[in-house]
């Protein structure tokens, strides 16, 4: 039976090749390098965008892949940020050690909170993720002799590997440093997603009920991905404060949890590059709005509210989904 054989071959080919890199995946990295050389004046903004991409990617792991809704991801971002800053003010100013410690600290928090929180679902889970984050924010405000409260604390990083200084003036080495960390984080997440573990996460998102019925300990697997996601969010938080040399209790802000979720939705969930697109568009629009219309009126807030409503109603797959649809139409026309 020739047709059967060919459909089997097609299926095998699909399974065996889908993890391979597509040439289009080089685009964001080429753009990032072009920005560095040709738009040096925007390096600070670009650095912030790169950090937010890492943060949004970490959220995509749980929201987009494993189907866990969280409005409290700043719990891990903030914890990573404070661990790094407090290490630096306590004579451990090495940025790399700071990153690793942030990842571990956030992972431990992710394990403790995930183990108990993930027993619940839906609204209860949502409320609990918010409650944990707000609790941490309250604690950070109450212990302001340690955290510096709203004014924050300043710190200095030592040179990376004792060689490269993280400059806070031209953001040249800082930008490259953050870009490299983003690249490594991205490779890590991409590998996981195309590995059996990632396929399993998608299964949980699609149908947790059936996953349990095929022998998957769903809660345990959700805790694992929650911990991984927390660690990466912790790294993002650490980078955020390292490049500024300053940390305030703002890193625990509930609004930031909302912002990063919006970036992800705007770009598109469960598709890796949605985080890139969403964070970039969000931060650029925010910047443009504030420069053109000023910050004395909440134009930006209004715009983002409207965009969110429209996205949910008309473009649930995000900007990335819109691009995909346009691309498909263009292909059809070509044929």
């Amino acid at each position: 039976m020739v047709p059967n054989h060919s459909s089997a071959a097609k299926a095998v080919n699909y399974l065996q090749t889908r993890h391979r890199f597509h040439w289009g995946e080089a685009i964001p990295w080429i753009l990032a390098i072009l920005v560095f050389y040709f738009l040096p004046g925007y390096r600070l903004l670009a650095t912030q965008i790169l950090v937010m991409i890492i943060f949004a990617l970490s959220l995509d792991l749980i929201v987009g892949y494993a189907g866990i809704i969280s409005l409290g991801h700043t719990a891990f971002f903030g914890t990573g940020a404070y661990i790094t800053a407090l290490l630096a003010t306590n004579n451990i100013p090495d940025p790399i050690i700071g990153l690793i410690a942030a990842a571990f600290g956030a992972a431990i928090l992710g394990f403790l909170s995930g183990w108990v929180l993930l027993r619940t679902t839906g609204l209860t889970l949502l409320v609990l993720t918010m409650a944990v984050t707000i609790m941490l924010a309250e604690l950070a405000n109450d212990f302001d002799e340690i955290t510096g409260g709203f004014d924050g604390i300043n710190f200095t990083n030592s040179d990376i590997f004792g060689l490269i200084e993280l400059d806070q003036l031209w953001y040249s080495s800082s930008y490259i440093y953050v870009l490299i960390v983003l690249f490594l984080s991205f490779l890590f997440i991409r590998t996981i997603i195309y590995a059996p573990f990632g396929r399993m996460l998608i299964g949980i998102r699609e149908n947790p009920r059936r996953m349990s019925a095929i022998g998957t300990p769903v809660h345990q697997r959700q805790v694992i991905v929650y911990v991984v996601s927390a660690a990466i969010a912790g790294i993002a938080g650490a980078l955020w404060v390292q490049v500024q040399g300053n940390v305030t209790t703002e890193v625990y802000a509930f609004e930031l949890s909302g912002d990063v979720l919006i970036m992800l939705i705007l770009g598109g969930t469960g598709r890796l590059y949605g985080a890139f697109l969403g964070a970039t568009v969000f931060k650029i629009l925010e910047n443009v709005t504030e420069q053109v219309l000023g910050t004395d009126q909440p134009y930006w807030q209004f715009a983002i509210g409207l965009v969110l409503i429209l996205t949910v109603l008309f473009a649930r797959r995000g900007l990335f989904g819109i691009f995909e649809d346009l691309g498909n139409k263009w292909k059809e026309r070509g044929q």
């Binding site: 399974l15 590998t191 195309y194 590995a195 059996p196 573990f197 990632g198 998957t216 697997r221």
Partner: peptide, 12 residues
Amino acid sequence: GATEMFRPAGHH
């Protein structure tokens, strides 16, 4: 093999 994180699913 469902918890394997670092080998592509396509290699199974």
